[in-house]
Simulated scan of single mutants.
Amino acid sequence: MKSFLFMGALLGMVNACNKNTTPTTSTAGSAAGTYQINGQLQNAPAGTKIYLAELGETQFVSRDTATVGENGKFTFSGTVPEAGIYQVKTTDKNQVLLALSNGSRVELTGDAEKLGDTYSVKGSPDSELWHRYSQALQSTQQQMQQAMPRLEERYSRAAQAGRTDSMRAIQSQAELLQKTSQRPVQQLVRQNPNSIVTAFVVTSILNPEENFTLADSVATQLKTSQPNSRYTKSLVARLDPLRATALGVQAPEISLLAPDGKPVTLTSLRGKYVLIDFWASWCRPCRQENPNVVKAYNKFKDKGFEIYSVSFDQDRDKWLKAIQADGLTWTHVSDLKGWESAAGQTYGIKSIPASFLLDPQGRIIGKNLRGDALAAKLATVLK
């Protein structure tokens, strides 16, 4: 059980130490080819410093500093190399994100002492869109923070009492809560697929692996509307390695030899829920996980569940001995090439154990379901 807080990835960047660089913006003038931020903050005495930073690949990079004048007013203006995400802050705890491009005219107001909760923004459609995303994300975070501790406590009590049915039910509730809480953000993504802000949200905050179909749709549209944007390129680069094994996609075919020397294809098991299990006899975590897999298999094998185990072994005898020793009575295949396994290459396996749960049509519906998570998922789909 774990809490799913969508702001986590963003907060990690927001609170990162800024890299001090020579500012690339200027506080002079506001010609048509420049951006301008006109701000007015409550509880910001004259002389208060306001900082502008650009979102880089892993952290915010300092770009400019302004000083608050009378009535809490300040101004940033200058040029940017391309449309991007920027941070305006008084302190690390009081900051907002804006989208800036040359020609932007942004009006920013709020309370300097609780800026993220009180700010409003006008004049920039992308900045206004981020504000809507921010409100949806904060609502999601609050919902999860309120609900997850109770679910975690119930799960812990059920685990201590050995009530596996209750554990699975609570796990299902947590998964449903997670999916439900994402919907407002997902709806904004669907409504605004051509915005760099949406590209940022999909890449950095939503999990592209769990939302692959939606993310891929956004990437497709951005490649047409903003092909040269770094945010488009970042999203595409994030999706490419996931494309073959994302949730919802058809699992790539595997055809390897079974212990008897005959080839067995993954698609030969079509019509059942299938767990593709990547493991090896020499992999201690794999062997430690095997009892959980055996337990799930014995419970659900007569209800339409099968396992297709792909070994990363190179020694045939050790592979076969491990199968017997651990009581793994399902389908096994291997090309005995270790990490050079053809199936491992296709599925992008970087560590084992690794697993993919397929529905009867061969679509991936779960990944790396370990411990009780596999049985809980099977209990849900094999009602």
Results as ranks from 00 to 15, higher is better:
Asn38Glu: 01
Gln40His: 03
Gln40Tyr: 01
Leu41Arg: 01
Leu41Val: 00
Asn43Pro: 03
Asn43Glu: 10
Pro45Glu: 03
Pro45Arg: 09
Pro45Gln: 08
Ile50His: 07
Ile50Cys: 09
Ile50Leu: 14
Leu52Trp: 11
Ala53Ile: 11
Leu55Met: 15
Leu55Glu: 09
Leu55Arg: 15
Leu55His: 14
Glu57Gly: 14
Glu57Asp: 13
Thr58Ser: 15
Phe60Ser: 02
Val61Lys: 14
Asp64Ala: 13
Thr65Trp: 03
Thr65Asn: 01
Thr67Phe: 07
Thr67Gly: 05
Val68His: 10
Gly72Leu: 00
Lys73Pro: 00
Thr75Lys: 11
Thr79Arg: 15
Val80Glu: 06
Glu82Met: 14
Glu82Gln: 15
Gly84Ala: 15
Gly84Lys: 12
Gln87Gly: 10
Val88Gln: 13
Thr90Glu: 14
Thr90Lys: 15
Thr90Trp: 01
Thr91Trp: 12
Asp92Val: 05
Gln95Ala: 11
Val96Glu: 04
Val96His: 07
Leu98Pro: 01
Ala99Lys: 03
Ala99Gln: 05
Ser101His: 04
Ser101Met: 05
Gly103Leu: 07
Ser104Pro: 08
Val106Phe: 05
Leu108Thr: 02
Thr109Gly: 07
Asp111Tyr: 06
Asp111Trp: 06
Glu113Ser: 11
Glu113Lys: 14
Leu115Cys: 08
Leu115Arg: 09
Gly116Ser: 13
Asp117Asn: 08
Asp117His: 07
Asp117Arg: 14
Thr118Arg: 06
Thr118Trp: 10
Val121Cys: 02
Val121Ile: 09
Gly123Val: 02
Gly123Pro: 05
Gly123Ile: 01
Pro125Asp: 04
Pro125Cys: 05
Glu128His: 06
Glu128Ile: 03
Trp130Gly: 05
Trp130Tyr: 14
His131Tyr: 13
His131Cys: 03
Arg132Asn: 13
Arg132Met: 06
Arg132Pro: 07
Tyr133Asp: 06
Gln135Ala: 11
Leu137Ala: 04
Leu137Gln: 03
Gln138Trp: 13
Gln138Asp: 12
Ser139Cys: 07
Gln141Trp: 06
Gln143Val: 08
Gln143Ser: 12
Ala147Leu: 12
Met148Leu: 07
Met148Ser: 11
Pro149Ser: 05
Arg150Ala: 13
Leu151Val: 01
Arg154Cys: 04
Tyr155His: 10
Ala159Trp: 04
Ala159Ile: 00
